[in-house]
């Protein structure tokens, strides 16, 4: 039995075919990151939720998984991309008016409705602030949450992303606390890794959800700190970074034990990662 008889006529479109996006704005907020606002030709791909990602590519270079930094329903896609490899370095050479190619959105993002009514503690390390911004904007837009606290750690003042937006978030009730890893001339804020901001927090552990986004090294220490504050594994949400080649649950690169991060994740409750020793 053929899976389908006539592939040229009845087969679905190739899931590997990317969709073109015009770059409406290209900014360089730090030496390592570039920020893009994209207008997609296909409006369907604007239907994303915070925490999801796109496979972002350039012909001749390939694709890389990039999380979304814009809030939902903003009519555009914003990406904050750090130049770390072949693909992302090539993307950094793009400017306003150029075309970027995306597939997606992929994966399971944050269930903002399901989080309503809770106190939220957002913990972001480094580039983790990019997907966190999408969630913070969604939360502010919806309203109906308890206390909102953002802990954000960057290596130095020159690496802080979205510094010009934090005042606006504070005005909407988000307690934004920023720390840098090492002392720096002129810096008057916190110094130390982001985990140092956890112990002083006043947390009502029964009604608090913690969201942790950052590089793989961050998780162990932040989880340890949050557990000490009485937050249960069921109340910790985190997003896992993995190598990905398809976004479709096929290429195998993002597999952790039984789960495909691109399908069941990238956002997980910590309790869901129990029994997955390679997850963190």
């Amino acid at each position: 039995m053929s899976l389908y008889a006539n592939p040229t006529k009845s087969s679905p479109p190739s899931p590997y075919l990317p969709s073109a996006c015009r770059i409406e704005e290209a900014l360089r907020p730090t030496a390592k990151e570039k920020f893009f606002r994209l207008a997609p030709h296909d409006p369907h791909i604007l239907n994303y939720s915070p925490g999801q990602f796109f496979m972002v590519g350039l012909p001749g270079y390939g694709e890389a998984p990039i999380s979304i930094t814009s809030g939902p329903d903003e009519g555009c896609i914003e990406l904050c991309i750090r130049a770390v490899g072949n693909v992302t370095n090539a993307i950094h050479r793009l400017e306003k008016g150029d075309t970027l190619w995306v597939r997606g959105p992929f994966g399971r993002g944050f269930d903002v409705e399901g989080m309503a009514g809770k106190d939220l503690v957002f913990v972001a390390g480094g580039i983790g602030i990019a997907p966190m911004r999408s969630l913070v904007k969604a939360v502010i837009k919806r309203g109906g949450f308890g206390r909102l606290t953002l802990l954000y750690g960057a290596k130095g003042p020159e690496e802080i992303l979205y510094g010009d937006e934090f005042e606006g978030w504070r005005a909407k009730g988000v307690d934004v606390r920023i720390t840098i890893d090492r002392p720096s001339p002129g810096w008057k804020g916190y110094v130390g890794v982001v985990t140092t901001l956890i112990p002083p927090l006043d947390i009502d552990e029964g009604r608090t959800l913690a969201v942790v986004l950052g590089p793989p090294v961050l998780y162990k220490f932040v989880i340890w700190g949050l557990r000490h504050k009485g937050i249960k594994d069921d109340d910790m949400l985190l997003s896992l970074e993995r190598r990905m080649k398809c976004g479709l649950g096929k290429c195998g690169h993002c597999q952790i034990n039984c789960v495909y991060v691109c399908q069941e994740g990238p956002v997980f409750r910590l309790s869901e990662l129990k029994g997955l020793p390679e997850a963190i």
């Binding site: 053929s2 592939p7 040229t8 679905p12 479109p13 899931p15 479709l248 096929k250």
Partner: peptide
Amino acid sequence: MDRVFSCGAQDVNYLARRGR
């Protein structure tokens, strides 16, 4: 392999070849 490439997103490259 049929299950892998037809589960979720249809992998048209595999499935077209398989179908023929």
